[in-house]
């Protein structure tokens, strides 16, 4: 789930059960990879990773960031995104809820081995950071001709 730790106002157990079902379903349906560097859900920013035959696509759901202050690096197949989300505090106001993440964050994403660290593109739009990493040519499936 994305977002809040203070989560559920009502129907807490229903919500948790539903969530559990969802997770169970997920593991049934997909060969979901749990990397050694993976972090528990709820960590900011939430991220999705997908693969096409040519590229790996990484989506970080990170609203309200200054893209110039983002630090992106890739070392072989290890993609690191670090930054800081500063939420200005209104001194004259009284706060009822502060669920939104504030402060420094760092997420390390282990991509499959054939990620090409030399061909990475990133853009930030509507609060989503999309990083595209090309796959190495040599790792693509090839047809072998039979003689």
């Amino acid at each position: 789930m994305f977002g809040s730790l203070t989560g559920f106002d009502g129907g807490l157990f229903d919500e948790l059960r539903r969530l559990q079902e969802e997770v169970d379903n997920l593991f049934d349906q997909w060969p979901a990879i749990t990397g050694v560097r993976s972090i528990s859900p709820g960590t900011f920013p939430a991220l999705n990773v997908g693969a096409t035959p040519d590229r790996f696509e990484v989506y970080l759901f990170a609203a309200g960031l200054d893209p110039r202050k983002l630090e992106l690096s890739i070392q072989q197949n290890l993609l690191t995104v670090a930054g800081k989300r500063e939420l200005p505090v209104n001194e004259r106001a009284s706060y009822y809820r502060r669920e939104r993440f504030a402060g420094e964050f760092r997420r390390v994403i282990t991509l499959p081995e054939d990620a090409d660290p030399d061909r990475v593109e990133a853009r930030y739009r509507d609060g989503v950071l999309h990083i595209s990493v090309q796959r190495k040519e040599s790792a693509k499936p090839r047809t072998i001709a039979l003689n």
Partner: peptide
Amino acid sequence: VVLRPAADIFEDDEGITLQLDVPGA
């Protein structure tokens, strides 16, 4: 499945402000 966006809510003399994270919207 519905995502429940995280919210900050604060009040000052003029009114109430809500801020919600809805990345991608």
